[in-house]
Protein backbone atom coordinates (compact mmCIF):
# COMPACT_ATOMS: atom_id res chain seq x y z
CA UNK A 1 0.00 0.00 0.00
CA UNK A 2 2.62 2.46 1.07
CA UNK A 3 4.79 1.17 -1.74
CA UNK A 4 2.21 2.26 -4.25
CA UNK A 5 2.03 5.76 -2.86
CA UNK A 6 5.75 6.12 -3.13
CA UNK A 7 5.76 4.80 -6.63
CA UNK A 8 3.39 7.51 -7.68
CA UNK A 9 5.54 10.20 -6.18
CA UNK A 10 8.58 8.97 -8.07
CA UNK A 11 6.69 9.26 -11.29
CA UNK A 12 5.64 12.85 -10.72
CA UNK A 13 6.01 14.92 -13.83
CA UNK A 14 8.06 18.09 -14.03
CA UNK A 15 5.25 20.55 -13.52
CA UNK A 16 4.23 19.06 -10.21
CA UNK A 17 6.87 20.58 -8.01
CA UNK A 18 4.49 22.92 -6.25
CA UNK A 19 2.12 20.06 -5.68
CA UNK A 20 5.02 18.05 -4.38
CA UNK A 21 5.83 20.81 -1.92
CA UNK A 22 2.24 20.77 -0.85
CA UNK A 23 2.46 17.05 -0.26
CA UNK A 24 5.52 17.56 1.86
CA UNK A 25 3.71 20.04 4.04
CA UNK A 26 0.97 17.48 4.52
CA UNK A 27 3.46 14.76 5.24
CA UNK A 28 5.12 16.90 7.88
CA UNK A 29 1.77 17.28 9.58
CA UNK A 30 1.16 13.57 9.50
CA UNK A 31 4.43 13.08 11.26
CA UNK A 32 3.06 14.63 14.44
CA UNK A 33 2.74 11.25 16.07
CA UNK A 34 3.50 9.76 19.50
CA UNK A 35 7.15 10.07 20.42
CA UNK A 36 7.74 6.35 20.56
CA UNK A 37 6.65 5.98 16.99
CA UNK A 38 8.65 9.01 16.04
CA UNK A 39 11.74 7.50 17.55
CA UNK A 40 11.18 4.40 15.47
CA UNK A 41 10.51 6.34 12.30
CA UNK A 42 13.60 8.49 12.72
CA UNK A 43 15.66 5.33 12.42
CA UNK A 44 13.78 4.43 9.29
CA UNK A 45 15.83 3.41 6.31
CA UNK A 46 15.54 6.11 3.68
CA UNK A 47 17.73 4.36 1.18
CA UNK A 48 19.47 1.06 0.99
CA UNK A 49 21.69 -0.78 -1.45
CA UNK A 50 21.43 -4.53 -1.79
CA UNK A 51 24.26 -6.55 -3.31
CA UNK A 52 25.28 -3.63 -5.45
CA UNK A 53 27.89 -4.38 -8.09
CA UNK A 54 29.13 -1.75 -10.49
CA UNK A 55 31.30 -2.11 -13.58
CA UNK A 56 33.04 0.37 -15.83
CA UNK A 57 33.34 -1.83 -18.90
CA UNK A 58 35.02 -4.90 -17.46
CA UNK A 59 36.55 -3.21 -14.42
CA UNK A 60 34.51 -3.76 -11.30
CA UNK A 61 34.28 -0.57 -9.23
CA UNK A 62 31.87 -1.74 -6.54
CA UNK A 63 31.72 -5.21 -5.06
CA UNK A 64 28.56 -6.43 -3.45
CA UNK A 65 27.86 -3.30 -1.41
CA UNK A 66 25.08 -3.48 1.17
CA UNK A 67 24.69 -0.13 2.83
CA UNK A 68 21.74 1.32 4.78
CA UNK A 69 21.05 5.06 4.79
CA UNK A 70 18.94 6.20 7.70
CA UNK A 71 16.43 9.00 7.47
CA UNK A 72 17.47 12.34 8.96
CA UNK A 73 20.94 11.11 9.70
CA UNK A 74 24.29 11.87 8.14
CA UNK A 75 26.01 8.92 6.55
CA UNK A 76 29.67 9.49 5.70
CA UNK A 77 31.65 7.44 3.23
CA UNK A 78 35.40 7.38 3.71
CA UNK A 79 38.26 5.58 2.05
CA UNK A 80 41.37 6.22 -0.02
CA UNK A 81 41.17 7.66 -3.55
CA UNK A 82 39.78 5.28 -6.12
CA UNK A 83 38.06 3.11 -3.54
CA UNK A 84 34.67 3.54 -5.17
CA UNK A 85 33.02 5.93 -2.73
CA UNK A 86 32.31 8.55 -5.40
CA UNK A 87 31.06 5.87 -7.77
CA UNK A 88 28.85 4.60 -4.98
CA UNK A 89 27.29 7.93 -4.10
CA UNK A 90 26.58 8.55 -7.78
CA UNK A 91 24.62 5.32 -8.03
CA UNK A 92 22.17 6.71 -5.46
CA UNK A 93 20.69 9.24 -7.91
CA UNK A 94 21.78 7.44 -11.06
CA UNK A 95 24.28 10.11 -12.06
CA UNK A 96 26.45 7.33 -13.43
CA UNK A 97 23.87 6.68 -16.09
CA UNK A 98 25.44 9.32 -18.35
CA UNK A 99 28.74 7.45 -18.49
CA UNK A 100 28.87 5.08 -21.45
CA UNK A 101 29.78 1.44 -20.88
CA UNK A 102 28.67 1.05 -17.28
CA UNK A 103 26.81 -1.93 -15.89
CA UNK A 104 25.04 -2.28 -12.60
CA UNK A 105 23.78 -5.28 -10.63
CA UNK A 106 21.80 -5.45 -7.42
CA UNK A 107 19.32 -3.00 -6.01
CA UNK A 108 19.27 0.57 -4.79
CA UNK A 109 16.13 1.20 -2.79
CA UNK A 110 14.57 4.57 -2.06
CA UNK A 111 11.66 4.22 0.34
CA UNK A 112 11.58 0.58 -0.62
CA UNK A 113 11.47 1.12 -4.36
CA UNK A 114 14.31 0.05 -6.62
CA UNK A 115 15.43 3.20 -8.40
CA UNK A 116 16.94 1.15 -11.21
CA UNK A 117 13.55 -0.18 -12.18
CA UNK A 118 12.66 0.45 -15.82
CA UNK A 119 9.70 2.74 -15.17
CA UNK A 120 11.52 5.16 -12.88
CA UNK A 121 11.37 8.78 -13.99
CA UNK A 122 14.95 9.98 -13.74
CA UNK A 123 14.03 13.63 -13.36
CA UNK A 124 11.66 12.87 -10.51
CA UNK A 125 14.27 10.66 -8.86
CA UNK A 126 16.89 13.38 -9.01
CA UNK A 127 14.50 15.92 -7.58
CA UNK A 128 14.06 13.59 -4.62
CA UNK A 129 17.73 12.74 -4.32
CA UNK A 130 19.67 15.95 -4.81
CA UNK A 131 23.41 16.25 -5.24
CA UNK A 132 26.23 18.64 -4.41
CA UNK A 133 29.49 18.12 -6.25
CA UNK A 134 33.12 18.23 -5.22
CA UNK A 135 34.00 21.11 -7.47
CA UNK A 136 31.51 23.87 -6.90
CA UNK A 137 29.79 24.21 -10.23
CA UNK A 138 27.39 27.12 -10.26
CA UNK A 139 26.06 27.91 -13.71
CA UNK A 140 27.48 31.08 -15.24
CA UNK A 141 24.25 32.82 -14.36
CA UNK A 142 23.17 35.07 -11.51
CA UNK A 143 22.89 33.73 -7.97
CA UNK A 144 19.12 33.98 -8.23
CA UNK A 145 18.95 32.10 -11.52
CA UNK A 146 21.21 29.37 -10.17
CA UNK A 147 18.98 28.70 -7.20
CA UNK A 148 15.81 29.03 -9.26
CA UNK A 149 17.06 26.70 -12.00
CA UNK A 150 15.57 23.50 -10.62
CA UNK A 151 12.16 25.13 -10.27
CA UNK A 152 12.31 26.77 -13.67
CA UNK A 153 13.05 23.53 -15.48
CA UNK A 154 10.30 21.98 -13.38
CA UNK A 155 7.94 24.46 -15.03
CA UNK A 156 7.49 26.98 -12.22
CA UNK A 157 7.03 30.43 -13.78
CA UNK A 158 5.35 32.39 -11.01
CA UNK A 159 7.78 35.07 -9.93
CA UNK A 160 6.52 35.25 -6.38
CA UNK A 161 6.95 31.54 -5.80
CA UNK A 162 10.43 31.69 -7.32
CA UNK A 163 11.48 34.59 -5.12
CA UNK A 164 10.07 32.96 -2.05
CA UNK A 165 11.79 29.63 -2.73
CA UNK A 166 15.12 31.23 -3.62
CA UNK A 167 15.10 33.24 -0.41
CA UNK A 168 14.23 30.21 1.69
CA UNK A 169 16.86 28.05 0.01
CA UNK A 170 19.55 30.69 0.46
CA UNK A 171 18.56 31.08 4.11
CA UNK A 172 18.70 27.32 4.60
CA UNK A 173 22.12 27.32 2.99
CA UNK A 174 23.23 30.04 5.41
CA UNK A 175 24.03 32.35 2.55
CA UNK A 176 21.10 34.77 2.49
CA UNK A 177 22.68 37.46 4.65
CA UNK A 178 25.81 37.51 2.52
CA UNK A 179 24.16 37.72 -0.88
CA UNK A 180 20.70 39.21 -0.40
CA UNK A 181 21.81 42.51 -1.91
CA UNK A 182 23.47 40.99 -4.93
CA UNK A 183 21.14 38.23 -6.00
CA UNK A 184 21.44 39.28 -9.60
CA UNK A 185 25.22 39.40 -9.85
CA UNK A 186 27.02 36.49 -11.47
CA UNK A 187 27.55 33.53 -9.20
CA UNK A 188 31.10 33.39 -10.53
CA UNK A 189 31.92 36.69 -8.83
CA UNK A 190 31.59 35.38 -5.27
CA UNK A 191 34.08 33.37 -3.21
CA UNK A 192 34.59 29.63 -3.60
CA UNK A 193 32.88 28.89 -0.29
CA UNK A 194 29.92 31.03 -1.25
CA UNK A 195 29.77 29.35 -4.65
CA UNK A 196 29.56 25.96 -2.99
CA UNK A 197 26.76 27.21 -0.77
CA UNK A 198 24.96 28.50 -3.87
CA UNK A 199 25.20 24.95 -5.16
CA UNK A 200 23.79 23.64 -1.89
CA UNK A 201 21.00 26.23 -2.00
CA UNK A 202 20.31 25.22 -5.58
CA UNK A 203 19.93 21.61 -4.46
CA UNK A 204 17.73 22.62 -1.49
CA UNK A 205 15.43 24.75 -3.63
CA UNK A 206 13.75 21.74 -5.17
CA UNK A 207 13.19 20.25 -1.70
CA UNK A 208 14.83 16.90 -2.12
CA UNK A 209 14.50 14.27 0.56
CA UNK A 210 18.04 12.99 0.33
CA UNK A 211 21.10 15.13 -0.38
CA UNK A 212 24.24 13.50 -1.73
CA UNK A 213 27.45 15.42 -1.19
CA UNK A 214 30.58 14.36 -3.00
CA UNK A 215 33.45 15.91 -1.05
CA UNK A 216 31.63 19.24 -0.82
CA UNK A 217 34.38 20.98 1.11
CA UNK A 218 37.53 19.47 -0.33
CA UNK A 219 38.37 22.51 -2.43
CA UNK A 220 37.66 25.06 0.30
CA UNK A 221 39.68 26.83 2.95
CA UNK A 222 39.19 25.85 6.64
CA UNK A 223 36.80 28.70 7.43
CA UNK A 224 34.52 27.94 4.49
CA UNK A 225 34.79 24.25 5.33
CA UNK A 226 33.67 24.99 8.87
CA UNK A 227 30.65 26.89 7.58
CA UNK A 228 29.68 24.07 5.27
CA UNK A 229 30.02 21.50 8.03
CA UNK A 230 27.83 23.57 10.32
CA UNK A 231 25.33 23.86 7.53
CA UNK A 232 25.29 20.12 6.93
CA UNK A 233 24.60 19.49 10.62
CA UNK A 234 21.71 21.95 10.42
CA UNK A 235 20.28 20.32 7.32
CA UNK A 236 20.08 16.95 9.03
CA UNK A 237 16.82 18.00 10.66
CA UNK A 238 15.00 18.13 7.35
CA UNK A 239 17.06 15.96 5.05
CA UNK A 240 18.81 12.65 4.86
CA UNK A 241 22.43 13.28 3.99
CA UNK A 242 25.09 11.12 2.44
CA UNK A 243 28.53 12.64 2.27
CA UNK A 244 31.72 11.41 0.70
CA UNK A 245 34.81 12.79 2.33
CA UNK A 246 38.55 12.41 2.17
CA UNK A 247 38.81 14.01 5.52
CA UNK A 248 38.41 11.62 8.42
CA UNK A 249 38.13 14.37 11.01
CA UNK A 250 35.26 15.78 9.01
CA UNK A 251 33.53 12.43 9.00
CA UNK A 252 34.07 12.08 12.75
CA UNK A 253 32.79 15.61 13.39
CA UNK A 254 29.55 15.54 11.46
CA UNK A 255 28.37 12.05 10.63
CA UNK A 256 26.19 9.61 12.52
CA UNK A 257 27.17 6.59 10.50
CA UNK A 258 30.34 5.91 8.58
CA UNK A 259 31.09 3.43 5.86
CA UNK A 260 34.68 2.58 5.01
CA UNK A 261 35.35 1.66 1.39
CA UNK A 262 38.44 -0.05 0.11
CA UNK A 263 39.00 -1.23 -3.47
CA UNK A 264 35.30 -1.17 -4.24
CA UNK A 265 34.32 -3.08 -1.14
CA UNK A 266 32.39 -1.75 1.82
CA UNK A 267 34.79 -3.02 4.45
CA UNK A 268 32.90 -1.80 7.45
CA UNK A 269 29.76 0.16 8.23
CA UNK A 270 28.75 1.26 11.69
CA UNK A 271 28.00 4.19 13.93
CA UNK A 272 30.67 6.79 13.43
CA UNK A 273 31.85 6.62 17.03
CA UNK A 274 32.42 2.87 16.71
CA UNK A 275 34.26 3.17 13.41
CA UNK A 276 36.67 5.66 14.85
CA UNK A 277 37.16 4.24 18.34
CA UNK A 278 36.51 0.57 18.03
CA UNK A 279 36.59 -0.67 14.45
CA UNK A 280 36.03 -4.36 13.92
CA UNK A 281 38.10 -4.75 10.79
CA UNK A 282 41.85 -4.50 10.84
CA UNK A 283 41.88 -2.52 7.58
CA UNK A 284 39.47 0.05 8.96
CA UNK A 285 41.63 0.49 12.00
CA UNK A 286 44.74 0.94 9.88
CA UNK A 287 42.97 3.56 7.80
CA UNK A 288 41.38 5.62 10.58
CA UNK A 289 44.56 5.62 12.59
CA UNK A 290 46.41 6.90 9.56
CA UNK A 291 48.58 3.88 8.93
CA UNK A 292 47.79 4.02 5.22
CA UNK A 293 45.71 5.91 2.69
Amino acid sequence: MQRDGNQKELKLSGSDITKDRHNRVLKDKEEIVPSVEKEASSRKLKMETQNLNFYYGTAQALKNVNLPIRENHITALIGPSGCGKSTFIRTLNRMNDIIPGIRIEGKVLLDGIDIYREDIDLSALRRKVGMVFQKSNPFPKSIFENVAYGLRIGGVKNKNILEEVVEKALKDAALWEEVKDKLHTSSLDISGGQQQRVCIARALAIEPEVILMDEPASALDPISTGKIEELILDLKRDYTIVIVTHNMQQSARISDYTGFFLLGELVEFDQTSKIFTNPKDRRTEDYVTGRFG
Binding site: M95, I98, S123, G130, M131, P138, G150, I153
Partner: peptide, 18 residues
Protein backbone atom coordinates in the same frame (compact mmCIF):
# COMPACT_ATOMS: atom_id res chain seq x y z
CA UNK B 1 30.95 23.77 -21.94
CA UNK B 2 32.22 22.23 -18.70
CA UNK B 3 30.75 18.82 -18.02
CA UNK B 4 30.09 19.98 -14.47
CA UNK B 5 27.33 22.23 -15.79
CA UNK B 6 25.64 19.33 -17.50
CA UNK B 7 25.93 17.17 -14.39
CA UNK B 8 24.56 19.94 -12.18
CA UNK B 9 21.58 20.30 -14.46
CA UNK B 10 20.91 16.56 -14.51
CA UNK B 11 21.25 16.43 -10.74
CA UNK B 12 18.53 19.08 -10.44
CA UNK B 13 16.15 16.93 -12.42
CA UNK B 14 16.94 18.36 -15.84
CA UNK B 15 16.35 16.14 -18.82
CA UNK B 16 18.88 15.99 -21.61
CA UNK B 17 16.82 18.27 -23.81
CA UNK B 18 16.29 20.86 -21.04
Amino acid sequence: VPNEYREASYALGGSKWL
